[in-house]
Design a protein around this nucleic acid. Structure first.
Lengths: 224, 224
DNA sequence: TCGTTAACGCAACTCCCTTCGCGTTAGAAT
DNA sequence: ATTCTAACGCGAAGGGAGTTGCGTTAACGA
C-alpha cells in the first residue's frame, strides 16, 4: 500500500530509519503518559529529519497505528489449552500488565482510533479486529464453550481493562479487588455468564437432564 | 476556583459568553465525529474573541471537561425503583443512546481524560467518579443486590458501552446482538454474576438451605 | 561493477495556534 | 447615579507544526 509505482526499497537505510522511528515512538510513549506525540519530536529523537517522518507516515495517528500493529502482530499470543479459566486468567493478567506498561496505553488508543476511522467505516474496524476475534474463537472452541462468543470475551475482559487503563493513565493500579480492572473478577464474570447460559439452555431443551457440558474436552470449564 | 482575589462576576455578560461557548462546543462536537476541537474555531462560532476563550479555560481539554461536567450534572439520572433488571435496562439503553449521539463521545472522552489527569492522581479520578458511584449504590440498595458493587456495574455496563462507542465513533450501531454494546446482553451479564455470587454465598454458609434471596424487596431480581 | 531512482537531508516557507499589552465595556456595590 | 474593576475586544507578535522544491545518498537490479 506504500506506493503504486513499480519497485520499493524495504531494506537497508529504509529499514534502519523505520526501526529508529519506531523505537523513538515507544520511548516517547513510555517517557510521558500523554498519548499525543509530536512528529518533529519523534524525528529528533530518532536522529531523522522531520520531513522524512512526514513523508513516510503523513500523520502522527498513522505512525502510532503502525507501531501498535507491529506490536500486536509479534507479541501477546492467545492461549488455547482447553482450560477456559486458566486461559482467560493468563490472557487477562498479561493484558492488564501490558495496558499499564509505559507506552502501552498510547498504542491501544491508536488501535481503537484506527478502528474508529470514519473513512473506512465498520469495514476498517472489522478488518483490524477479526484476527484477534478468531484467536479467541479458537480458545473457546478448545474449551468447548459453545455458549460464548469472542464478543463476550471482548466485552467482559478487554473493555473493562481498557477503560481502567485509560483512567489509571500509566499510574500503577493498586491491586485491590475493589478497584476496576481486577483480572480475577473479570474472568469470574465470563464463567458466571457461561454457567448462566448453559442453565438457560437446559431449561429450554428439557428440565430433567443431568447438568453436564454439551461437548468438547472432558475437563470442567464452568466452575471452581 | 476561578480567582483568589476578592469578587467575581458570574452574571450578565460573563454568563452569556459562557453559554455561547458551551453551545458552540456542543455544535462542533455534533458536526464532526472528531473529538479534537480548536479553541479559535469555538470562539468564532460563539461570536466571541479567541483571547476570551483562552483566558477563561486556558486549554481545550478544560473546556471540554467543563461542558461534560455540566451535562452530567443536569442530565442522565440513575433510576432506583427496586427492580434491578428494569433499572439497568433503562440506564443502559439511555447510555447507549447518549454515547452514540452526535457529540456524546467527545464529552465522555473529556471526562475520562480528566479522570486520567496525572497531576491530580487517583484523587482526581475518585472525585469525579464518586458521585456517580453513589447513585449506582442507591440503585443496588433499592434492589437488595448486596452482592454487587457500583464497580461491577461500571465494568459490565459502562466499559463495554464506552469502548463500543469509541469504535463506532458516531456511526449508527446496527442493533445486532452479535455486535459489541448490546444493552440487553450487558444487563444479562450483571444478573448472571449476581446469581453466581448468591449461589457461592449459599455454598459457603451451608449447602442445605433453600435458594432464596438473602434480603431486600420481595421481587426476584436474579433470573428471567 | 555500474546505472537507475527510491528514499533521505536540508532549508525556506506557510499556516495557525497561543500569548500578551492595552484600551473599552459593563457587572456589582455604594 | 456614580465608582470600581472584572471581563471582554482588538491587534500584534511569538512559536511550533506541517509542506514543498531541490540536491544528495544509497538500495536494488543488471
Amino acid at each position: 500500500m506504500t506506493q503504486a509505482t513499480g519497485n520499493t526499497r524495504p531494506g537497508g537505510r529504509t529499514a534502519r530509519t523505520r526501526e529508529a522511528v519506531h523505537a523513538a515512538v515507544r520511548e516517547l510513549l513510555a517517557a510521558s503518559p500523554d498519548t499525543t506525540i509530536g512528529l518533529p519530536e519523534v524525528a529528533a529523537r530518532a536522529g531523522v529529519h522531520p520531513a522524512t517522518v512526514y513523508r513516510r507516515w503523513r500523520t502522527a495517528e498513522a505512525l502510532l497505528l503502525d507501531v501498535a500493529f507491529t506490536d500486536v502482530s509479534e507479541r501477546s499470543p492467545v492461549p488455547a489449552t482447553g482450560d477456559l479459566r486458566a486461559d482467560l486468567l493468563t490472557y487477562a493478567h498479561g493484558l492488564a500488565e501490558a495496558v499499564v506498561r509505559p507506552g502501552g496505553l498510547g498504542l491501544i488508543r491508536a488501535y481503537i482510533a484506527a478502528m474508529a476511522d470514519p473513512v473506512l467505516g465498520l469495514a476498517g474496524a472489522d478488518a483490524l479486529g477479526r484476527p484477534r476475534m478468531e484467536q479467541f474463537q479458537a480458545m473457546l472452541d478448545a474449551a468447548g464453550a459453545v455458549e460464548l462468543t469472542p464478543v463476550d470475551v471482548f466485552e467482559m475482559i478487554h473493555s473493562p481493562l481498557y477503560i481502567a487503563a485509560m483512567i489509571l493513565n500509566g499510574r500503577p493500579r493498586p491491586d485491590d479487588p475493589a478497584m476496576p480492572g481486577d483480572p480475577g473478577r473479570l474472568v469470574a464474570t465470563v464463567l458466571a455468564v457461561l454457567a448462566s447460559r448453559r442453565a438457560a439452555a437446559r431449561d429450554d431443551t428439557g428440565d430433567q437432564e443431568p447438568p453436564r457440558p454439551r461437548r468438547g474436552p472432558s475437563q470442567d470449564t464452568g466452575s471452581r
